[in-house]
């Protein structure tokens, strides 16, 4: 079983920020169909702030990296994705405590706790056409990182035929059907980044066994 350090989590979040930057226009397009057309900009602002915060205030444990990233998202995003993603990361960070290295299963359990906290915060159930429709299947596929990335992408694609039951899109009722949920799309970017970083680490042989 592989163990992950602060560097792994930092590389993950940096890679996720890159993916958000690359896909910001697509996120905004998705959000203009059923939301208020700010998801790409909001996520880009949050991602840049996370990268800047992690450079300015280096953290030495996976938990502390996640806590700082989560806090930064809550305070910089300006839309609902701030408190939602912020809660996901912050709660996961808290669960990991101050361990310098965490097992893949511990990271999975921490992210599962984060997803539970997101569900509690937003009151969303599976199939409500939210970020959780991508986050949940990804977390359940862990510790297989490649499978998690694929599960998140599939989860996002599977939101297309759903009717939104949370957030502004829910006001559209049936007219929200036929569009991918922007939050699920950004969650797929987050877990796609995790899969790439884990694959790169495995390829480099940098994984320590414990």
């Amino acid at each position: 079983m592989a163990h992950r350090d602060a560097g792994f989590v930092r590389r993950w979040l940096t890679e996720a920020a890159r993916a958000v930057e690359r896909d910001a226009d697509r996120l905004t397009e998705l959000d203009s169909a059923i939301g208020d057309a700010d998801h790409g900009n909001n996520m880009r602002r949050g991602a840049l702030a996370v990268v800047a915060a992690l450079e300015k205030e280096p953290r030495t444990t996976p938990g502390a990296v996640l806590l700082l990233a989560g806090r930064t998202l809550v305070s910089t995003v300006g839309g609902a994705s701030g408190p939602l993603y912020g809660t996901l990361l912050r709660r996961a960070g808290k669960a990991l405590g101050d361990a310098e290295r965490v097992a893949d299963t511990e990271l999975r359990d921490a992210l599962r706790g984060g997803a539970d906290a997101v569900a509690q915060l937003g009151g969303a159930a599976p199939g409500d056409k939210t970020m959780l429709d991508a986050v949940r299947p990804a977390v359940e596929a862990l510790p297989d990182y490649a499978a998690a990335g694929a599960a998140a992408a599939r989860g996002a694609a599977d939101t297309v035929p759903l009717r939104a039951r949370k957030g502004r899109a829910s006001y559209l009722g049936e007219r929200s059907v036929g569009h991918m949920d922007p939050g699920a799309a950004s969650a797929a970017l987050l877990f796609g980044a995790l899969a790439r970083v884990a694959a790169a680490e495995a390829a480099a042989g940098g994984v320590s066994d414990g």
Binding site: G78, G82, P83, T87
Partner: peptide, 14 residues
């Protein structure tokens, strides 16, 4: 509504 409610709730949870 929306982020206004979620942000306050996220802050209260910490």
């Amino acid at each position: 509504l929306g982020s206004a409610v979620l942000t306050v709730r996220a802050m209260l949870a910490e």
